[in-house]
């Protein structure tokens, strides 16, 4: 099912959570709503679900205006950040809930419900834990039960609010790959909210970057990462160094504040060398080296006194044999220029 949000605005008291948001989600897509806290991403998700009603704007499912329908009538699957499992029910009862509360006329038979729950338990690989209570499960298991519960009613849309937010790093990684796989199998139109850019870029077909109640950019992961539409997007999707300066004829001029332009360079797009290469470069002194992990992170002090972050592969680091307090040259490989400085 396709989803359209047209000109959605929502205020909470003085706080504008959403301001004129327009978004189109295609049938079968897996879309991430990405943004910092307070950017309105969760509010937008809840508006789509019918758990929140916008002050103005329209929500359409398959082109049909459903703005006035309640959450119950919209028949979406919703997965909550803190799972919201029914604590007094077993895993089995939790998953069966949506089918059991149906009016008698459309309620499946006992056997059918049982079969459906068993099928979902297989899908989430928790067949042996059907009689456990939510409090007896780990965070990752609970989240999978929450997902199965949402899928049991066969919704046409699956909405997930920070689905992996409360889990530890390792389980997170596992579960998000599993979600991607699951989506490839069942192709249900899905929207998930996250503040983790890595998660959004890895899992989603398209990423919607939000900031202060507005959409900054919508695009495929590589598109938003490589061609950010605004300084905010560039900043939010990875670590970044900011320089005042300008770019003319492919030549970068740094430390020219009068231009009003800001140069953005990702740490891995700065190169450290012992000798200048004739192109753009500046001098810096190595302050800190952290070589734990696949990338070596170097902090250097530029000649004008600002701190600069550089990342390089271990191999390059071994070749250079950098030491602390050494004077080096830093060469920007790719620079992105935006007109005005926005808050980082």
């Amino acid at each position: 099912m396709s989803i359209e949000a047209l000109n959605i605005s929502k205020r909470f008291g003085q706080f504008a959570a959403l301001e004129g948001v327009n978004l189109e989600i295609n049938r079968g897509e897996l879309v991430a709503l990405l943004g910092p806290s307070g950017s309105g991403k969760t509010t937008l998700l809840r508006v789509i679900a019918g758990l929140e009603f916008p002050d103005s704007g329209t929500i359409r499912f398959n082109g049909k205006d459903i703005s006035d329908r309640t959450a119950r009538e919209r028949q979406v699957g919703f997965v909550f950040q803190h799972y919201a499992l029914f604590r007094h029910m077993t895993v089995f009862e939790n998953i069966a809930f949506g089918l059991k509360v149906r009016p008698r006329s459309s309620r499946p038979s006992r056997e059918k419900i049982r079969a459906k729950v068993q099928e979902l338990l297989r899908l989430i690989q928790l067949e042996t834990l059907a009689q456990r209570y939510p409090s007896q499960l780990s965070g990752g298991q609970r989240q999978r039960v929450a997902l199965a519960r949402a899928l049991a009613v066969e919704p046409s849309v699956l909405l997930l609010d920070e689905p992996f937010g409360a889990l530890d790093a390792k389980v997170r990684l596992e579960l998000r790959r599993w979600l991607r796989q699951l989506h490839d199998e069942i192709h249900i139109t899905s929207v998930f909210v996250t503040h983790d850019q890595e998660e959004a870029l890895e899992v989603a077909d398209r990423v919607v970057v939000m900031n202060q109640g507005r959409i900054e950019q919508v695009g495929a992961p590589d598109e938003v990462y490589n061609h950010p539409a605004s300084p905010f997007v560039y900043n939010f999707l990875g670590n970044v160094n900011l320089f005042h300066g300008r770019v003319d004829d492919g030549k970068t001029y740094i430390q020219e504040t009068a231009t009003g332009q800001v140069l953005y360079v990702r740490p891995h797009l700065l190169e450290i060398a012992r000798l200048p290469n004739g192109g753009s470069h500046f001098r810096a002194r190595i302050k800190q080296i952290n070589s734990a992990g696949p990338l070596v992170k170097v902090e250097a002090i530029a000649e004008w006194g600002d701190s600069v972050r550089v990342e390089m592969p271990q191999e390059r680091f071994q070749n250079l044999q950098l030491v602390k307090n050494e004077e080096v040259f830093i060469i920007p490989k790719d620079v992105k220029v935006f007109a005005k400085r926005e808050p980082a």
Binding site: L51, A71, Q75, F78, F97, V101, R149, A150
Partner: peptide
């Protein structure tokens, strides 16, 4: 809220 999205009255 979970119950409502699952179709409960």
């Amino acid at each position: 809220e979970a119950a409502l999205t699952l179709g409960a009255s």
